[in-house]
């Protein structure tokens, strides 16, 4: 870990301004990912801005009937919130499928969105990784790639985004609210928030330098059977091989997003038109441009079968 300076920001605007004053700074909230990466010198911030005191820890109704989730709401609190459990079940289920109780107690809503990939080549500083050291190459391509992405990949990177929560936010059409160092705020649709790796896999999101997430908003509840199905090698505390977030209405229409298959939560709205025709048809569209490796090609079939299971469960769950 490199030496760094530290400050506690008092307001979101202060925090963003502080980030702009200190190139090479990072915001820190729960620290469940950032501190590990700093110990390994994968992240080497020279300045940390503690955003825990910004008061962004509330879950409030919005004017249009949705909810605004403060950036600092802990994953545990969010998953236990009555409104979330009642109206956005897929989100509550995705949250409790992630990490462990201890980590969820610390991890925040914004931090969860901003966590970095768990690719083992990213974590091993002896190995090439374009995400960690741009231009050094990708260790996973041609190496160990069983956990890696099958769609939206590039020649530079096949890493996945590890979040469960983000997959549920994607299927719920969430919006990320931010503030920039100049005080301007903006709203970013979750679909646009995470990037595909392309030739710049070092950049995970569309956030600009110093831009701070203040909240995530969810639109008015849309009902339906809300299911989050995470498939993994052990029963708990493992990243998804694949995951399926689905909202299925009584008439068989609905939405589907996938985790563990891409550099971002993966949703293809056009594929959802196929939902009444079943999992095979949906998966064919969802993963139409898949470029799996020999080690992770099983994910294509796994998605189809897991989705079939989810759709059957949704049918059974309809009142």
């Amino acid at each position: 870990m490199r030496p760094f300076t530290f400050e506690r920001a008092k307001t979101p605007a202060d925090a963003a301004a502080a980030a702009s004053r200190n190139p090479g700074s990072r915001f820190v909230a729960g620290g469940t990912n950032l501190l590990d990466l700093m110990k390994l010198e994968i992240e080497t911030p020279t300045h940390l801005i503690d955003v825990n005191g910004l008061g962004l820890d509330k879950i409030e109704p919005t004017e249009d009937g949705g909810v605004r989730i403060g950036a600092l709401v802990r994953n545990t609190d969010l998953s236990a919130d009555e409104r979330i459990r009642r109206d956005y079940g897929v989100l509550a289920r995705a949250l409790v499928a992630g990490a462990t109780g201890q980590l969820r107690n610390m991890a925040t809503t914004a931090g969860n969105l901003l966590q970095r990939t768990r690719c083992p080549y990213f974590y091993d500083t002896n190995q090439p990784c374009n995400k960690r050291t741009p231009g050094s190459g990708c260790g996973a391509i041609g190496g160990y790639s069983r956990q890696h992405a099958v769609v939206g990949v590039s020649d530079a990177c096949i890493a996945t985004h590890p979040s469960d929560m983000a997959v549920a936010l994607r299927v719920l059409d969430a919006t990320v609210e931010t503030i920039r160092p100049d005080g301007a705020t903006r709203k970013i649709a979750i679909a646009e928030f995470h990037r595909l790796p392309g030739d710049k896999p070092q950049i995970d999101t569309v956030l600009m330098s110093g831009e701070l997430i203040t909240a995530v908003t969810l639109p008015k509840p849309i009902g339906g059977a809300q299911i989050y199905r995470k498939v993994r090698d052990r029963a708990s505390y493992a990243f998804a091989l694949i995951s399926v977030a689905a909202i299925v209405q009584r008439d068989g229409t609905g939405r589907v997003a996938l985790g563990g298959v891409a550099h971002k939560p993966w949703r293809v709205e056009a594929a959802e038109a196929e939902m009444p025709r079943g999992a095979k048809a949906v998966t064919a569209r969802l993963l139409a441009d898949a470029k799996p490796t020999a080690e992770n090609a099983f994910k294509l079939k796994l998605v189809e079968r897991a989705l079939a299971s989810v759709l059957a469960e949704a049918k059974g769950a309809q009142p």
Binding site: R118, P120, Y121, Y123, D124, Q127, G139, G142, G143, Y144, D233, R234, A235, S236, Y237, A238, F239
Partner: peptide
Amino acid sequence: DKRHGFFVNHDLAGYEVPVHAD
């Protein structure tokens, strides 16, 4: 990693052993 000759999953997140839930 048969190219570079090392065990890739060299931490307890990558080398999975049963957890209580298993």
